[in-house]
């Protein structure tokens, strides 16, 4: 009896600078598989569909339950988390599953990309609350459950990069920051202490690659696996920028 298999087409790239190529693998089907378990099977037995021994596919992953944000890939043409993308659903769409690395970030190897641009942007927007250190200084500011609802939603951003991969404004060659940075800006600017750096954040966010480069394709909000209110973030940061620019015009020192 032959076991049921399905075909997986993987876009591979040996090194950062080398050219990419496609390889197809036959993978044994078991119920309830996700893309990670598919890749695990390929790694355990790296033989292509035409019987060639190849180096195992390299990919990036962590928690496998869609909270760490590591395993973003372009699967059947869409940016998503490989762990929460189920094989059964993909096979309904297409008999061959197609897996590519994200196209907006430099490839390290195969499906593993370098997303340090995202982390650098967090540094640029001063993505932190300016605390006076870890000493015992009492509780933080009180806030309403409604305020917490919005901030909690923002705080679930796992820096996966789906929003940027799907964004037509965000390319490898420009400096657009994208929805991730805007949501984090609003996250910190809506905290009573985080707000103290709001002007500095806005100075950055109003510069090149900042909020005004958003083209409103709104793909970000569609593809975000954590359903962050990214449109609200973009609009809210836009409002802050509008007000800040007027304020800066009349009272700014620089």
């Amino acid at each position: 009896m032959s076991t049921k298999t399905f075909k997986v087409k993987v876009k591979r790239q040996d090194e950062a600078a080398s050219a990419s190529y496609w390889q197809t693998f036959d993978v044994d089907y078991t119920p309830n598989m996700n893309v990670i378990s598919t890749l695990q099977k390929i790694a355990a037995k790296p033989v292509t569909a035409d019987g060639k021994d190849v180096a195992p596919v390299v990919w990036d992953c962590g928690c496998l339950e869609e909270v760490c944000g590591a395993c973003t890939m372009v699967i059947n043409g869409r940016a998503c988390q490989a762990c929460s993308t189920l094989v059964d659903e993909l096979l309904e769409e297409n008999p061959v599953i197609q897996i590519e690395p994200m196209s907006k970030f430099p490839v390290v190897r195969d499906l593993w990309v370098d997303r340090s641009r995202m982390f650098n942007n967090l540094k640029r927007i001063k993505g932190w609350v300016p605390t006076d250190g870890t000493y015992d200084l009492g509780a933080g500011p009180q806030e309403t459950q409604e305020e917490q609802d919005l901030r909690y939603a923002y705080s679930r951003c796992m820096t996966c990069g789906c929003c940027l991969e799907a964004c037509p404004q965000f390319t490898k060659d420009n400096d657009f920051m994208g929805a991730q940075s805007f949501a984090q800006t609003d996250y910190f600017n809506s905290h009573a202490t985080g707000k103290l750096l709001a002007d500095e954040r806005l100075d950055v966010i109003m510069g090149p690659g900042g909020i005004s480069d958003c083209g409103n394709s709104q793909n970000c909000v569609q593809v975000c696996p954590k359903e962050l209110p990214l449109l609200t973030a973009i609009a809210s940061v836009g409002r802050q920028a509008t007000i800040y620019s007027i304020k800066r015009f009349f009272t700014g020192k620089k």
Partner: peptide, 23 residues
């Protein structure tokens, strides 16, 4: 309790009560 306070100051969005305290 001090650690919770510290995390609160760092901006952790702890769930809140009707009065705005940590739930």
């Amino acid at each position: 309790p001090k650690i919770i306070d510290l995390l609160d100051r760092m901006g952790v969005p702890f769930n809140r009560t009707a009065e705005g305290f940590r739930d």
